[in-house]
Structures are given as structure tokens and as C-alpha cells.
């Protein structure tokens, strides 16, 4: 029981970052019908920017909360700009081209960012530990039944889950309650009709990329603190978050969130009960099963249009 509980906590903690990345995939897919394969690299760039900020502010000895706020805020801002630039320079010129062209471009952008990050001007090829801004420590400790049956929750788990849930709430508010969110929902249905409403569709698309990229940055910083920073760190989480978005129903925002948590849980359970050798493979097994059994995903919707 304690072992299972511990695995579930770990799974949610990992899944929370997948969920944050998956939100960007699903939002961009919602407006452009594009799987933005460069999204994992935006996550990586979030970690890289956070790394440099953390090194920069280290000598000033700020309190943990202040340092975290600057690091997260800086990474989010930088990635929002990066997301804007990717869409503006790489995808916008191809707006009316076949989707395959844009998809291949996305893979190209992904490779470009991976390789840029490996140059020493951006980061460099070797993994680096994140500067010690916040020390990992156990904040909750339950003994279940006996002294050997202990379940622990670390401050990083709480950070990951708290940020993920909080940002999901903010995102829901933006999408459901604001003027910009209404425009986003309209544009995700049809460009031409939306522009007849007076919506600047290009601006709405930019906004979507910036929002999704800022969320990916948060996931990147959490994982940078938890593990380390590497130029290729975006590859696996990027692919798994893509699977999570498909699992939840690509285009569905709550679906991406649920999908992310589920992928995190499945992966951790496989690691805990089968073998950690399968932990990366299982996400792709899930992808294959979903595509065979329910291609629209858990919360995906099918809409009939009345003529």
C-alpha cells in the first residue's frame, strides 16, 4: 500500500510537467491543426534560460521565493518570445501551404534549436546540474502501518503539482472568461468566420504560441531543478507530452491536462512494478493503443455541423 501510494505521488509529480507541455501541443493543434514538434525544444530552452538566470542571480543570495519567481518568470517570458518567433518566422509564411510542409518545418525548427543549444553560445553539449536555488527535501512524511512503510512527498513534488494545477486554473480562466480566450476558441473553429467577427487571427495565433510556450517553460524549469539541464532534454518529455495530448484528445485543453497526469502515472507504475527499462517505451504503447481503440482520445470531441 505504501509502495503504491509512493508511486502514485511520483507519477503525479512527473505527470504534472507532461501536462504543462501537453497543453501547448493541444492549443497549437487547436488553432493550426499542427503538431508543433519544436515544442519539446521550447521546454528545453526554458530550462536553459532558467539556468543562466540562476547563475546570474546566485551571487546576490536572494531568498528562495524571490529567486524562484525571477527564474520562473524570466524563463516564461523568454519562451513566450521564442514561441512567438517560431510561429512568426517558421510557420506563418507557410500558412496556406499543405499541412505536411508545416509539420516538416516543425521538425526542422526542433533540430535547429537542439543544435543551437549544443553550441557554447547558448548552452553547450554537456549536461549541467542546476545551481542550488532550492534544496530538495521531504516536506510530508507518512508512516503507513509500520516504521518501514514510509511515504514521502518532496518540496519539488509540491512545486511541480502546485504550479501545474495553478497554471491550469489560470489557463481555464483565460480561455473561458476573457475576450482573448473567446477569440482563441473562435479561431480554433474557423479562420475566415473569426476574421469576419473582427478578430485578428494572426495575433490570436501568436497569443496561443506564447501562452503554450510559457507553460512549457515552467515544466522545463521544474525538471531542470529536479534533474539537470541538457540540450537534448526536450526530446523525450516532448514526445511523451505529445502522446499525452493525443491520449486526452488532441485539441482539448482539459484532455491534455488529464492525459499528462495519466501518462506520468502509467510510466511510474511501469517503472515501479515492471522494469524501468520499459518506462520510455510505455508511452508509445499507449499511443498505439489509443490510435487503434479511440483515436479521438479521452475527452476528444466529435462535432456534427448543422447545414
Amino acid at each position: 500500500m505504501d509502495y503504491l501510494t509512493q508511486q502514485l505521488i511520483n507519477g503525479l509529480s512527473i505527470g504534472a510537467t507532461y501536462a504543462l507541455i501537453a497543453l501547448g501541443y493541444t492549443m497549437v493543434y487547436g488553432v493550426l491543426r499542427l503538431i508543433n514538434f519544436a515544442h519539446g525544444e521550447v521546454y528545453m530552452m526554458g530550462a536553459v534560460v532558467a539556468y543562466w538566470i540562476a547563475i546570474g542571480i546566485a551571487p546576490w543570495g536572494w531568498p528562495v521565493w524571490g529567486a524562484l519567481a525571477v527564474i520562473f518568470g524570466g524563463a516564461m517570458g523568454a519562451c513566450a518570445v521564442l514561441g512567438f518567433a517560431i510561429e512568426f518566422f517558421a510557420y506563418r509564411p507557410l500558412r496556406n501551404k499543405p499541412r505536411l510542409v508545416v509539420l516538416i518545418t516543425a521538425i526542422g525548427v526542433s533540430l535547429l534549436l537542439q543544435n543551437l543549444a549544443q553550441t557554447r553560445y547558448v548552452f553547450g553539449p554537456t549536461p549541467e546540474a542546476f545551481p542550488a536555488v532550492i534544496e530538495a527535501k521531504t516536506v510530508v512524511r507518512w508512516t503507513m502501518g509500520g516504521p518501514d512503510n514510509v511515504v514521502t512527498v518532496s518540496n519539488l513534488d509540491l512545486l511541480s503539482l502546485g504550479l501545474s494545477l495553478g497554471l491550469m486554473g489560470v489557463l481555464a480562466w483565460v480561455v473561458l472568461r476573457t475576450r482573448q480566450g473567446l477569440a482563441l476558441r473562435a479561431v480554433s473553429y474557423r479562420f475566415d468566420t473569426s476574421s469576419l467577427m473582427g478578430i485578428n487571427t494572426n495575433r490570436t495565433i501568436s497569443f496561443t504560441f506564447m501562452l503554450g510556450s510559457a507553460l512549457a517553460a515552467v515544466a522545463g524549469v521544474v525538471d531542470a531543478i529536479r534533474y539537470d539541464v541538457r540540450p537534448l532534454m526536450g526530446l523525450m518529455p516532448g514526445l511523451k507530452a505529445f502522446v499525452a495530448a493525443v491520449l486526452g484528445g488532441i485539441g482539448s485543453i482539459p484532455g491534455a491536462f488529464v492525459g499528462g497526469l495519466v501518462i506520468g502515472l502509467i510510466e511510474t507504475l511501469v517503472k515501479g512494478y515492471l522494469s524501468s527499462a520499459y518506462s520510455d517505451a510505455v508511452a508509445f504503447v499507449v499511443l498505439i493503443v489509443i490510435l487503434l481503440v479511440r483515436p479521438s482520445g479521452i475527452l476528444g470531441r466529435y462535432e456534427a455541423e448543422k447545414l
Binding site: 477569440a183 473562435a186 467577427m197 473582427g198 478578430i199
Partner: peptide, 29 residues
């Protein structure tokens, strides 16, 4: 649209997933 020309497109093009109120709000975007 900003100049004061509104276009009701062929086939109506209602946003099917949005409420009637939200559709109206979009008209006054």
C-alpha cells in the same frame, strides 16, 4: 469589420461549440 461592415456568411457559420451568447459576443469583438 472595424469600418462598420458586417458580413453574415453563406451557411451562417455559427460557432457550434460556443453558446449563443458567446457567438453574439464575438460579433461585437
Amino acid at each position: 469589420v472595424g469600418l462598420g461592415i458586417s458580413h453574415v456568411p453563406e451557411g451562417r457559420q455559427i460557432f457550434p461549440h460556443l453558446s449563443a451568447r458567446e457567438n453574439l459576443m464575438l460579433g461585437g469583438y
